[in-house]
Amino acid sequence: MSTYTEDQRKVTTHRLIEMKQRGEKIAMLTAYDFSMAKLIDEAGMDVILVGDSASNVMAGNMTTLPMTLDQMIYHAKSVVKGVKRALVVVDLPFGTYQGNSMEALSSAVRMMKESHAEAVKMEGGSEIRESIERVLSAGIPVMGHLGLTPQSINKFGTYAVRAKEEAEAQKLISDAKMLEEIGCFAVVLEKIPAKLAAEVASQISIPVIGIGAGGGADGQVLVMHDMLGINKGFSPRFLRRYADLASVINEAVGSYIEDVKTGDFPNEKEQY
C-alpha cells in the first residue's frame, strides 16, 4: 500500500489546481493496462497518463509516432477500468490533431466517448493553438506539453535538453502562458533547464508537471517501465529507478523453467 493515502477523494482537474495553490506536489505516472493501472491507483497516484510511450515500452517501436488513435483508445479503456481515484489523462497520438482543428476535435471526442478517460494531452504551443481551442470548446480538458515533444523528434533530430537558448526559452514561457490563457488545466514540461521550469511554474496558475525539468515544477511524471526497472536500456539523468523488476522477473521465470524441466512443478499439492 502507499505511504501516502491521506486523501482518497477522486482527483479532478480542479483539484490539481487546488493542490498547486496549497503547495502540494502532484505525482503522475504512466500506465497502459488494467492490472498495472489498478496497482498504481491503489498506491495513491494523483494522475495516471496513458502515454503514447506505449509505442516504445509496449510495442517496441523506436519513437512514439507509430501509435494510432485506435491503439491509444484500447490502452486507455483498459486503464480506466482499473482506476478509482486518479485522474486519467490520455495522449492524443501523432497525426490526430496537428494542422487540422476539426480532426483534433473528432479525435478527442472519440477518445473521451470510447475510453471514458477524463482528459487528453496534446504536444505543442502556438503552432497547435487552434486545435487545442477546438478541443476545449467541446468541454474536453486539455493538458499541454512543451519543451522536448517526442512526437516532433524528427524535427529536433535529438532527445537533447530543449530551451537552453534564450529565444527558445522565451517562446516556451510565452506558449505556457498561452496554454493557461486559452483554458488548459495543466502543462507538462519535458527535458528543459530546471531554472526555466521553476520560472514557468511561478508565472502561471495552472500546474506544471516536470519530466527532466527539475524540482521547481508543481509535480513530476515518469514512465512506469523506466522507474520500475523493467526497461533497463534507458538511463537519462532525470530517471530514478525505484525497483529492479527486470531482474526479479528474470529470476522468477528462470525458476519456473527449472521447476518445469526437473518435474518439481506441479507437485502433489498443486494438482487435482
Rank of each mutant, 00 (worst) to 15 (best):
A117D: 11
M112G: 05
G124R: 00
H116E: 10
M102Y: 14
G95D: 11
S131R: 12
S106I: 09
S101P: 00
V80R: 10
R110Q: 13
R85G: 11
I128A: 02
E133C: 07
R85H: 14
E114D: 07
N100I: 11
S131D: 12
S107M: 07
M102V: 13
G124V: 09
A86T: 13
E118S: 12
A108W: 08
G125N: 06
V109L: 15
M112R: 14
K81Q: 04
A117N: 06
R134P: 00
I132A: 05
Y97A: 02
L92W: 01
M102T: 11
F94G: 09
A119Y: 02
V109P: 11
V120I: 13
S106Y: 07
V120S: 09
K84Q: 04
E133Y: 12
G99H: 12
V83L: 07
K81N: 03
A86W: 11
K81I: 00
P93L: 09
V88H: 02
E127D: 11
G99Y: 03
R110L: 13
P93A: 00
E133G: 11
S107A: 14
P93Y: 13
Q98G: 03
G124S: 04
F94D: 08
F94E: 09
M122N: 07
V90S: 13
V88G: 06
A117F: 00
V120E: 01
D91A: 08
G95R: 12
A104F: 05
E118Q: 14
M112W: 13
E127S: 14
E118M: 07
I128N: 00
T96S: 15
K84I: 00
S101C: 09
S101E: 05
E127H: 11
V89N: 00
A86C: 14
R110I: 12
V89R: 00
E118R: 08
S115W: 03
S115N: 14
M122I: 15
V80Q: 00
K113A: 05
E127L: 13
E118N: 01
E130F: 06
I132E: 08
K113C: 01
E103L: 15
L92T: 12
V109S: 13
G82P: 02
R134Q: 15
Y97G: 06
G125E: 08
K121L: 00
R85M: 08
A119W: 09
R110G: 05
K113T: 06
E133P: 04
G82A: 02
V90L: 01
H116C: 09
S101V: 06
S115G: 07
A86G: 15
K84P: 00
S131N: 03
R134V: 13
A104Q: 12
A119Q: 04
M112H: 03
V88W: 10
M112C: 06
L87Y: 00
G99V: 05
H116I: 08
D91E: 01
L87N: 00
V80T: 04
Y97D: 04
R129Y: 02
T96G: 13
E127V: 07
S126H: 10
A108N: 05
Y97K: 08
G125C: 09
V88E: 01
I128T: 04
K84D: 04
A117W: 06
S126K: 14
S131Y: 03
A117V: 10
E103V: 05
G125Y: 02
H116K: 12
V109A: 10
M111D: 09
Q98M: 12
K81E: 07
T96Q: 10
E127R: 10
V89S: 02
M122P: 14
T96C: 15
R110F: 03
E123Q: 06
N100C: 09
S101D: 07
S131E: 14
A86E: 03
V90W: 07
